[in-house]
Design a protein around this nucleic acid. Sequence first.
RNA 1: GCGCUUGUAGCUCAACUGGAUAGAGCGCAGCCCUGCGGAGGCUGAGGUUGUGGGUUCAAAUCCCACCAAGCGCGCCA
Length: 557
Amino acid sequence: MSEVLLIRQRIIESIQQAAIQAQQSGKLPGIPLPEISVERPQKAEHGDYATSLPLKLARSTGQNPLIIAKNIAAFISCNAEIADVTIAPPGFINFTLSKEWLIKQVNNILLQGNKYGDIDYGHGKYVQIEFVSANPTGPLHVGHGRGAVLGSTLANVLKSAGFKVQKEFYINDAGNQILAFTRSLFARYQQCLDIDVEMPAEGYFGSYMTDLAKEIIENCGDKFIKMPSVEAEAELGQLGLDKMIARIKESLELLGVRFDQWFSERSLYKNGQYDKAISILRQNGYIADKESATWFVSTALGEDKDSVVVRSDGTPTYFATDIAYHYNKFIERKFDRVIDIWGADHQGHVSRMEAVVGALGINPKRLKVIISQLVTLRRGGELVRISKRSGDMITLSEVIEEVGVDACRFFFLCRSADSQMDFDLELAKKESQDNPVYYIQYANARISSILRLAEEKGIDFTDGDISLLTGETELTLIRKMLLLPEIIELIANSLEPHHLTYYSQDLATIFHSFYKQCRVVTDDPDTTRARLKLVASAKLVLSKTLHLMGMTIPDRM
RNA sequence: GCGCUUGUAGCUCAACUGGAUAGAGCGCAGCCCUGCGGAGGCUGAGGUUGUGGGUUCAAAUCCCACCAAGCGCGCCA
């Protein structure tokens, strides 16, 4: 376990013991104690940790919270780790870590290397994150980009937090949209061969379909018009689908996103899992036949409407395969936890899905659906359409090329998933000079530059004496570095990876400030070697943070 | 009409999940290079947290009502 999480635990225990001792001594009424927690105060003058326990006890004991604080704090003694325990109005007990302990952590970080920050929060539990899962009927757009960055970052953080993680892309290769895709492609294919056919009304009119048709003509010629049209559609459709999936993979690759598994919707029908899932629901009494269709009786689980599972024409809805898919995730593949990241247009589906999971006999708490809100793309304030069916769209790949991967990832990441975002291409490019992305990477470049200088001068700092790092500026930097494990824990718990972007900016700011105030390589060899150690550890922490966000860490810019 | 999400500085967003004087970036007004990368540092102005009530020692955060924006609402996915 991380040292910094351990010390937090020890502080909590010492508060608990002190409260019990206060009760035994009669200074605190013997009422049951609430769960004790500590928090990180916002202001440095309030110390490193604080508890509001006295305030929570004020009502039930009828005592003044400040008196309670005083009486509890009297039983907490300082030690090698805790330098100071103080009380503050209206009723806080504040803890300050000792300089010695803080400084010691520099060696600790260097020792852990790129494993620094990793914690054992997940205990090896198996988590699946399913994200993007875009229909393979068109290229990815910015909305998918947001989901991709969210999901991949979350996967990185959860791994770091001690979970076993699987990243999955669900390929919707069954259903009506595939039929429409196939017909559109066949129409474009024929049109490119000067055959006068009409596009289907519900078809995909984007220009990428024509490009796809041309590409297929280049590779396969006109063989599909010589075949019976049913066969031709089937074969051409599959070919087109494969090519679209390949393009989706390429776009994701550009963002640095790789999946462990590409899961086919169709496979659920082939291996009988669809039938199995529905029969479980039927057994549990959640399936009803009415109006010549088959329904999932979600009203029995508190939903306001039932949902069609099999249409009156006998074909299953996408909801039916989603049932089978989640049966597969939890029961066949035995994930302890499943995280689905969906777009805002699927939010009405969330409570229904949770109901299904429960109806399958699975604790619904094991499923967490994250809704990533809409992204509106703008160029200089003007709206850019990203609709797949209409012609004019800008793809994710184009956006990445225009603003760069690192900026892209950072922008998508820095807002919490449930707030909508405007992505202005002009702004993203214009700000690239003055961008937080460059600001953070610049901090790393500066560190690298210092380490290069040290190397050129042949300075070996492996036995540098870190106990010299007693300056306030140095301690501030150490304190910030020590926050990383807590940030990882926070994200593993809240599933909100945007905290990383703020942490990385804070860390960079504090480093830049340190850089200004403390020269590292000087005539004083002892200070030089001590500070080189500090700087080397800062590089580890910064690199780890950027790595978790999936960003590059250039040593020169 | 109902449901989900959002509303915080001029703009874009945070706020450790109920804690102390609500913080960053951009923009704005200034200041700082005879030292490791100025893509930098420092200072300042800027707020009735959409509105009104409620719960609490404590509310941007929880509850209720209203206003505004986005998304969705049984045989599309």
